[in-house]
Computed example of a mutant assay.
Amino acid sequence: MVRFVAAVLLWAMASAAAAEPLRTAVFDIELVDMSQEAERGPRDDQSRRVKLVSDELRRLLQASPQIQLVELGPASDEINQKAPLYRCNGCAEDIARALGAELLVSGIVQKTSDLILSFAIAIRDVRSGELVRGGQADIRGNTDESWLRGIRWIVKNRLLSEPLPTRP
Rank of each mutant, 00 (worst) to 15 (best):
M1K: 13
V2G: 15
A6G: 13
L10M: 13
W11P: 12
A14Q: 06
A17R: 07
A17K: 12
E20Q: 15
T24I: 00
F27R: 03
I29M: 03
M34A: 12
E37D: 12
A38L: 02
G41A: 03
R48W: 12
R49C: 04
V50R: 08
V53W: 01
V53M: 01
V53I: 08
S54D: 02
E56D: 02
Q68Y: 07
L69N: 05
V70F: 03
G73T: 13
S76L: 12
S76I: 13
I79N: 05
K82V: 14
A83I: 07
P84M: 01
Y86E: 03
Y86F: 12
A92D: 12
E93Q: 14
R97M: 05
L99D: 01
G100Q: 02
A101C: 04
A101V: 02
G107P: 00
Q110H: 10
Q110M: 10
Q110L: 10
I116H: 11
S118G: 11
I121Q: 02
I123V: 05
D125Q: 07
V132K: 06
R133V: 04
G134L: 10
G134W: 10
G135N: 02
A137P: 09
A137F: 13
D138F: 07
I151N: 03
R152P: 06
W153G: 13
K156R: 12
R158H: 13
L159E: 03
L160M: 05
P163F: 05
P168I: 06
